[in-house]
Computed example of a mutant assay.
Amino acid sequence: MKLRANCKINIGLNVLRRREDGFHDVSTVMLPVRELYDELEIEPSGALEFVQRGLAVDCPPQENICLKAWRLMHARYGVGPVRIALDKRVPFGAGLGGGSADATAVVLGIDALFGLGLTEAERIDCAAALGSDTAFFVRNAPQLCTGRGEVMRPVRPALDGYTLLIVKPDEAVSTREAYAGVRPAVPAESLAELMRLPVAAWQGRVKNDFEPHVFDAHPQLARLKESLLAAGARYASMSGSGSALFGFFDDPQRAQNYTPPFDGVFLHRERL
C-alpha cells in the first residue's frame, strides 16, 4: 500500500494556558499543504521492518514515529508486523508537521491494510495518542484546532485563488525550544472571529505566539518573514514552532519571482 503524507501550515497559533498534564491549550487553524508530502509504503511482513530514505531526521530509525504508530495499533488491535518504507521529503524541524503526518498515515494505512473498519472518532483517538498535530491529518482539511490540537471543527479561510509560498532555512527550531520561551495568554480576538476577515486584514492580528522569542533567537527567520511581505505577500507568518515561514500571495507572479535574502533556503509553492 502506497500513501502520501502531506504536511500542514498553522494560520495563527495562540498558546492559551498550561495544562495540569504538562501540555498547553492552544488555538490554531491548520491548513493542509497538498503538494508537499512524504511517501510511505506499508505491507504485511514476517517481522517489523522500517526503511527510510530521502531527508534525514534527528532520531534513530528504531525511534521513528512511524514505528510508534505501528506499536500503538498492534497494542490496541493486535495487527501483525509490517514493513514500512518512508521516503522523507518534508523538511524536519520546520513546524510543518511532517512527522505527525507520517504517523497518521501509518494509522490510516494499517486500518485499511488489516480491514479494521475504524470510525473517524477511533482514528482520531489513535492519532491523538501519538502527538498534538497528528489528529488533524485524519481529516486533512482546514480545521480550527483547540485543546492540545486534537479538538477540531471545520473552518473556511478565504484563500481560494491564493498562492502559498513556504520558505525554510537550514536551521531548525525544536518544539521544546519554542515552548520554553512562550508566555501563554488568551488573545483579545479569537481565531474563529479573525478567520471571517479577508486575508489582507490578517497581518498584525492573526499571530503566532512563538514568533517573538523564536525570532530573537533566530533573527534569520524574522528576515525571511519580512522578505515575504516585501515581495508582496498579503499575509506572512511562521508555521507552528518554526523554522518554516509562509506567505499568501494574491499575485502568483510575485510568488514565482520571490528570491530569498540568503542562500540555503528550501522553497515550495502551490496554488490554493
Rank of each mutant, 00 (worst) to 15 (best):
P32F: 00
G109K: 04
K2I: 12
G147V: 05
R176W: 00
A141T: 15
K225V: 02
V107C: 08
D133G: 09
P198V: 09
R205D: 02
G99D: 13
A127V: 08
A69F: 08
R176N: 00
R19K: 10
A105C: 08
V167S: 09
L108I: 07
D170H: 09
Q52C: 14
D87E: 15
Q203I: 00
M152Q: 14
V57M: 09
R18S: 11
A231N: 10
F248R: 03
D251Y: 07
N208A: 09
T104A: 10
M238Y: 10
C66V: 12
H74W: 03
P261V: 10
R223T: 13
L245F: 02
D87A: 13
L130P: 11
G147C: 07
E122L: 01
D209H: 13
H218S: 11
G115E: 06
Y37D: 03
M195Q: 02
W202A: 01
L113C: 03
D251I: 08
L229H: 06
G240S: 05
V173T: 04
F50I: 14
R271Y: 05
I110T: 02
Q143N: 06
E41C: 02
R153F: 02
I110R: 06
A185F: 00
N6D: 03
G95Q: 07
E270T: 08
L197M: 14
F246I: 00
Q62F: 08
K88C: 04
A222W: 08
V186D: 11
E20A: 15
I166D: 06
R18P: 03
A141F: 01
L228E: 02
L67V: 04
I42Y: 14
M30V: 01
L48E: 15
S27E: 15
F137Y: 15
L72H: 12
H74F: 01
D160N: 12
D160V: 07
V107I: 12
C126L: 15
L48C: 09
I11F: 11
P198H: 10
V90Y: 03
E177H: 04
G22M: 04
L16A: 12
R123A: 04
H268D: 10
L113F: 05
G147L: 05
K88R: 02
G115V: 07
A236D: 10
V107S: 06
C126K: 09
G204I: 05
W202H: 01
Q143W: 00
Q256G: 06
P169S: 03
A56V: 08
R271H: 13
Q52E: 15
G98E: 12
V29K: 04
F266V: 06
E39V: 09
V199L: 06
V173G: 05
T104M: 06
P187V: 01
Y37C: 04
V186P: 04
P198W: 05
F23K: 00
L144W: 11
T259M: 07
A47H: 15
E270P: 12
W202C: 01
L194C: 04
Q62S: 15
C7T: 05
I65P: 10
F248Q: 02
E171F: 05
E150V: 01
